[in-house]
């Protein structure tokens, strides 16, 4: 029990500290690396909660895919740090407002659970005890039966976002020569090789 508590405080403290470093580090690449550290600690907290499936998915999706591309972009950008500092105060009110709204929503959600303890039984489908099924199974049972429409809808939202990104970045340039493998493979011999009989002393 003590070890679990110690682990919780260590992971939580590192998560919060790296979150602070994300916004205070001078170098944007360091910011992304601290963001990755924060993801890791969040995953560790999931493991402590017994939600190992969510922890692994967090690492695979956010650290293994999203943050890699994020790091990719940040490394390629040539960011002017002085200019970035310059706009800091200008954007502070908007940032603070968004932060406040998110915080208020969090407080409302948590307050709701605290005020009405039986709300949990109204909202969620009854979950089997974790000793009986793994949480992968429990999540799958809920996601693919009770919440199938929400699940499909979120999939469609992602699909639309993907198509949008492709449409925005696709440019059709004239004069680009692309490799056509099947054309290369199925090219007949007559189209590429010509046998010429050359008489001695005359050349081609």
């Amino acid at each position: 029990m003590i070890i679990q508590a110690v682990c919780f405080y260590v992971f939580a403290a590192v998560a919060v500290a790296s979150g602070v470093m994300v916004i205070s580090a001078r170098n944007p690449v360091h910011s992304v690396l601290f963001l990755i550290l924060a993801f890791f600690n969040a995953a560790a907290l999931f493991v402590l909660l017994g939600a190992e499936f969510l922890a692994m998915i967090l690492v695979i999706v956010y650290v293994g895919a999203v943050a890699v591309l994020f790091l990719f972009v940040v490394m390629m950008l040539d960011i002017n740090f002085v200019e970035l500092r310059h706009g800091f105060l200008q954007y502070l009110p908007i940032g603070a407002l968004i932060g406040f709204i998110l915080f208020a929503e969090l407080v409302l959600v948590i307050g709701y659970w605290a005020l009405a303890p039986n709300i949990a039984s109204v909202l969620a489908a009854p979950l089997p005890a974790t000793a009986q099924v793994t949480n992968t199974q429990a999540l799958g049972d809920l996601l693919y039966t009770r919440y199938i429409y929400a699940f499909q809808a979120s999939g469609i939202v992602l699909l639309i976002a993907m198509i949008g990104a492709i449409v925005l970045t696709l440019r059709a340039r004239a004069g680009v020569r692309r490799q056509d493998s099947s054309a290369q493979v199925y090219r007949p011999r007559a189209a590429s090789v010509e046998i010429v009989k050359i008489e001695v002393g005359k050349g081609v």
Binding site: F53, M56, I57, V59, I60, V63, G64, V68, T134, T136
Partner: peptide, 16 residues
Amino acid sequence: NVGILYLFAISSLGVY
């Protein structure tokens, strides 16, 4: 329980 996901996660971290 999620051994194969763990392996997948670790191998996807190798790029870092």
